[in-house]
Computed example of a mutant assay.
Amino acid sequence: MVGESAADTTAREALLDRAMGPKRKKKSSEKLRRGRRPSEGLAFVARDASGVVVGTVRLWDVRLGEGGPAALLLGPLAVEPGLKSGGIGSALMPPLFKPGSTLMRHAIAEAARLGHGAILLVGDAPYYGRFGFSADRTGTLAMPGPYERHRLLALELKDGTLDGVKGTIKAAGRKIKGQAPGFVA
Rank of each mutant, 00 (worst) to 15 (best):
L155K: 08
G178L: 01
I176M: 15
G139T: 08
S134A: 10
E148F: 12
R151C: 13
L141Q: 04
F131I: 06
G132T: 07
D136Y: 01
P144R: 05
L157Q: 07
Q179T: 15
A171F: 00
M143V: 10
A154E: 04
M143G: 09
T138V: 08
A180Y: 11
T140D: 15
F133T: 04
G160L: 06
S134I: 09
T161C: 03
L162V: 03
A142C: 11
R137C: 06
G178E: 09
L141V: 11
S134M: 04
L157E: 03
P146I: 07
K170C: 08
G164R: 13
D163Q: 13
R137M: 11
E156T: 04
I176C: 14
L162I: 07
P146K: 15
K177L: 14
G145H: 10
R137E: 08
T138G: 04
R130N: 06
Y147W: 13
D159F: 01
D136C: 03
R151T: 14
L152A: 02
G132Q: 07
G145A: 09
I176Q: 15
K175Y: 07
G160V: 03
T138S: 11
A171I: 00
A180M: 12
L155C: 05
K158A: 02
K158F: 00
A135H: 12
T168N: 02
L152N: 05
L155D: 00
G132N: 08
L153S: 12
T140G: 09
R151H: 14
G167M: 07
S134T: 13
R130F: 06
L153C: 10
P146C: 03
G132V: 05
V165L: 03
L157W: 06
D159T: 14
G167I: 08
S134W: 12
F131E: 00
A180S: 13
L141S: 06
L157R: 05
L152I: 05
T140V: 10
F133A: 09
L155W: 01
Y147V: 05
K166H: 15
P144G: 10
T161E: 04
G132K: 11
T138Q: 10
R130Q: 15
A142T: 13
K170A: 15
T161M: 02
K175I: 13
D163V: 11
T168P: 02
G164D: 09
I169W: 01
D159Y: 00
K158E: 01
G173L: 02
I169F: 00
